[in-house]
């Protein structure tokens, strides 16, 4: 599974990554020797049904969990603990309710050494401006809508300038209208800032709309089944017919992998 021809050299490399959990009825293999190369500035979408290990994979890259076998290399260095070079956006915004919007965005920046406080505030304001919330810096999280909160979470994840942005179903709790707006924002930021992004979703159309490559996983054991190159021009609109057609292809591929798996049992 090599990176897209048009992207830079490999930034994130997964080699034989295996992760097992203790389930109610014996051990469950959440991920079974997964190999994946992600290029600099590449947007990868991991899709699959629940239990396919896509969120587990993201947690391993984030350093929030440890692989049983295999290795994860970020620019050649093994990943062991969480760090600001891999920022995470979660399904719930995870904003801290005791801090205002600006202080939330500053949280990671304050832990970043060799910066003056004025610079940190400047950077935080810059990212709030990028997500269109410059006028909300003194608001408290509970005063914002779900979409605005997820935007603040995006600004907070971008602010420490991570090498890789990890997104764990960040749009799934939002209404369709807000989601469509955020697809636009994410694509704009991705194109402008050339960020490497790993996004987990169960929404195939979303994956096709955002990704340079869509990586299809299926469960029992969690494995990569197929990888799709998405060569549609950006910015992509979620309702474009070409996009719908590609999403249809991915969906039928998923159905055949699931069917094949069930037949094998």
């Amino acid at each position: 599974m090599t990176p897209h021809a048009e992207t830079g050299p490999v930034q994130l490399a997964l080699r034989g990554v295996t992760k097992r959990f203790r389930g109610a009825s014996g051990p469950v293999t959440a991920l079974d020797s997964v190999d994946l190369d992600v290029g600099h500035g590449e947007f990868i979408c991991l899709v699959g049904p629940s239990g396919c290990g896509k969120s587990t994979l993201l947690n391993l890259v984030a350093g929030l969990d440890e692989a049983d076998e295999g290795s994860i290399l970020l620019d050649g260095e093994p990943v062991r603990t969480p760090g600001r070079d891999r920022m995470v956006m979660f399904q719930q915004d995870a904003l801290f309710p005791w801090l205002n919007v600006l202080e939330n965005v500053l949280f990671g920046l304050r832990l970043k050494p060799n910066l003056r406080d004025a610079e940190r505030v400047e950077v935080a304001r810059h990212y709030l401006d990028i997500v269109g919330l410059a006028d909300k810096e003194l608001a408290r999280p509970h005063e914002l809508s779900g979409g605005m909160r997820q935007r603040v979470a995006l600004a907070r994840a971008l602010a420490p300038n991570p090498r890789v942005l990890l997104m764990d179903e960040p749009f799934s709790a939002l209404d369709a209208l807000t989601r469509d707006l955020l697809y636009g924002d994410i694509q704009r930021i991705f194109t402008q800032r050339k960020k490497t992004i790993l996004l987990v979703t169960h929404n195939i159309r979303e994956a096709v709309c955002l990704g340079d490559r869509v990586v299809l996983l299926s469960p029992n054991p969690g494995k990569i089944r197929q990888v799709f190159d998405i060569r549609l021009p950006r910015p992509r609109r979620i309702n474009h017919p070409d996009l719908a057609e590609l999403a249809g292809e991915v969906t039928s591929a998923l159905a055949s992998h699931l069917g094949g798996h069930e037949a094998a049992i």
Binding site: R84, F96, F107
Partner: peptide, 26 residues
């Protein structure tokens, strides 16, 4: 989730206690 989010931003040890656990449980 608060703890995990803070950890990804590099918070641990006493920082995690004073900036996350204590204010969150206030």
């Amino acid at each position: 989730l608060y703890v995990r989010a803070a950890q990804t931003m590099g918070s641990r040890g006493w920082h995690l206690w004073s900036r996350i656990l204590i204010p969150a449980s206030l």
